[in-house]
């Protein structure tokens, strides 16, 4: 008996860790069939327009709008991490006198200090994507990047997003070059000698209860005044 034809629902979900996995478009899994059809038809209309008007930027704006729409929680969605209020640390010093550290969830690391998740040496980006459900069961590991790293030493791997841009130019998600410049210009007092990065797709409860407080203590012990956070 022949296999049943692929449904539209299966098609749109196949971009999220399925046979068409494309992390730039995995958001189609979060849309309804009708919404995904609307998105794809609109995308093709924009491409057609671009033949005549060369407005490629319209396509980018359109996709970013749909990405935001797809990730917005439904009004009746159960949300786990919702707080009435949050901590607000009053800075002890002006920024220009502060020691600043960078911490991102972009998954950057130095090539000879690969965190080797699950004991895998040289894990590829593809394998990280294929093992995303395993990453979600364990707390994240923090990679330390000396801020004096040579550009060729930096690597990025992350099972949750398309790392193409972050691999081409780490500053799209790991802006160390700009922090160096801001230090040279006196905008920040001092750049902490290590930057930090981890893969944010991780076990949330353990991150919240154990890992995050440990990292906070490490930063306090290092006398860091300000942390620039970049989720990816």
């Amino acid at each position: 008996m022949a296999d049943a034809p692929e449904t539209f629902e299966e098609f749109r979900k196949s971009f999220s860790y399925g046979e068409r996995s494309d992390l730039d478009f995995k958001f189609m899994k979060s849309l309804s069939d009708d919404e995904a059809a609307q998105f794809l038809a609109g995308l093709l209309a924009h491409v057609g327009d671009a033949y005549d008007h060369a407005r490629l930027t319209d396509i980018i704006d359109y996709v970013i709008d749909w990405q935001a729409r797809a990730y917005a929680p439904a009004p009746d969605a159960k949300r786990t991490w919702v707080y009435e209020e949050g901590p607000f640390a009053t800075p002890a010093k002006p920024l220009a006198d502060s020691r600043v550290a960078l911490l991102t969830s972009s998954g950057h690391f130095v090539h000879d200090d690969d965190p080797e998740p699950f004991g895998v040496v040289g894990m590829t980006q593809q394998e990280a994507e294929e093992r995303i459900s395993e990453f979600l069961k364990v707390p994240p590991e923090l990679s330390r990047v000396p801020v004096s790293f040579a550009p060729g030493e930096l690597r990025v791997r992350h099972g949750g997003y398309d790392v193409t841009s972050a691999a081409l130019d780490h500053n799209v998600a790991f802006p160390l070059d700009h922090l160096h410049d801001l230090q040279a210009d006196g905008v920040i007092g001092e750049l902490h000698d290590e930057a930090f990065s981890f893969m944010g797709a991780a076990a949330q409860m353990r991150l919240q209860k154990e890992t995050a407080p440990e990292w906070a203590k490490m930063l306090r012990d290092a006398e860091v005044d300000v942390v620039l956070l970049v989720p990816v």
């Binding site: 901590p87 981890f198 991150l207 995050a212 906070a216 203590k217 306090r220």
Partner: peptide
């Protein structure tokens, strides 16, 4: 994830911006 980390860092008395 970064929200958890940011809240923990703030609770430790260090200012964050994201």
């Amino acid at each position: 994830s970064v929200g958890h980390v940011g809240r923990a860092i703030e609770e430790a008395g260090i200012a964050t911006t994201a």
